[in-house]
């Protein structure tokens, strides 16, 4: 009894955060999915999380947590198929496009080098659609960062810088969030990738003023030459899994 209670307790906390007033059907499915995930019951978890997304397609969190479950279960094609089908009926959902794009990104590390290019391009397409529907901070940040993963030879870093500048404008005009530090890091990386080290360092320094505890910013500002190059390029290694968990967005 005690064990059951302790496992349910965190879910109740989540539920209270989600919907203070009433529990929707999607929320119930979401909670069932998370509960199944606790025991690595992926079949049940994915079933309920898909129901949750289907019931609330524009819910960024449902989609994000569904993808994290997919990463654990390694059923990447299932997610791609699911989001594709969802978009047939909900083509105007910006966050559904965003999660669909991330589902492509999630598959990249487990594929061959050419397939990685194709998946990265498909992801960009979905990020662009999301932006067209809803030009949000997360959409600009996501597409901008995505451009930075492309090798220099494809000349997409400048597009990334443009998107990240827009993300920066958005965050500087509104309430401050802890995740805003990511835009400083990425925009600086974008300047570095476009061979403008001075601007890169200026952005990282500006970010450090606002987020003085940021290790990533401190590292960048402390390194030079090949050490800096190695640090940044390691971030964009296609063989390394990108953290596409969006929980930072609702952390504060």
């Amino acid at each position: 009894m005690k064990k059951l209670f302790s496992s349910v307790w965190p879910l109740l906390l989540v539920a209270s955060w989600l919907v203070p007033c009433q529990l929707h059907a999607s929320d119930a499915d979401y909670l069932q999915g998370l509960k199944a995930l606790e025991t690595n019951d992926y079949s049940t978890a994915l079933h309920y999380l898909e129901l949750a997304v289907a019931g609330d397609p524009d819910n960024l969190r449902y989609g994000s947590d569904y993808r994290q479950a997919i990463i654990r279960s390694k059923e990447f094609d299932r997610a791609l198929k699911f989001f594709e089908q969802m978009l047939v009926q909900h083509s105007k959902s910006a966050n559904l496009h965003l999660n669909y794009g991330f589902a492509y990104v999630d598959k990249i590390p487990v594929t061959g080098s050419i397939t990685q290019v194709i998946l990265a391009n498909d992801a960009l397409t979905e990020f662009a659609k999301s932006l067209e529907l809803q030009p949000s901070w997360i959409a600009y940040y996501t597409r901008g960062t995505s451009y930075l993963f492309w090798p220099k030879i494809f000349k997409r870093a400048a597009l990334g810088v443009a998107d990240l500048q827009r993300a920066m404008e958005i965050q500087q005009s509104g309430r401050r969030h802890s995740y805003h530090v990511k835009a400083y890091i990425a925009l600086g990386d974008g300047y570095w990738k476009t061979d403008d080290l001075d601007k890169a360092r200026a952005v990282w320094a500006e970010g450090l003023k606002e987020f003085p505890a940021s290790i990533a910013l401190k590292q960048r500002l402390s390194l030079k030459g090949d050490e800096l190059k190695n640090l940044i390029e390691a971030q964009f290694d296609p063989g390394t899994r990108v953290n596409t968990d969006l929980r930072d967005l609702w952390a504060d």
Binding site: I114, V117, I118, N121, D122, I153, F154, K155
Partner: peptide, 9 residues
């Protein structure tokens, strides 16, 4: 290499 991108995508 850049010319290959449309072929692939």
């Amino acid at each position: 290499v850049p010319l290959l991108l449309p072929v692939l995508t």
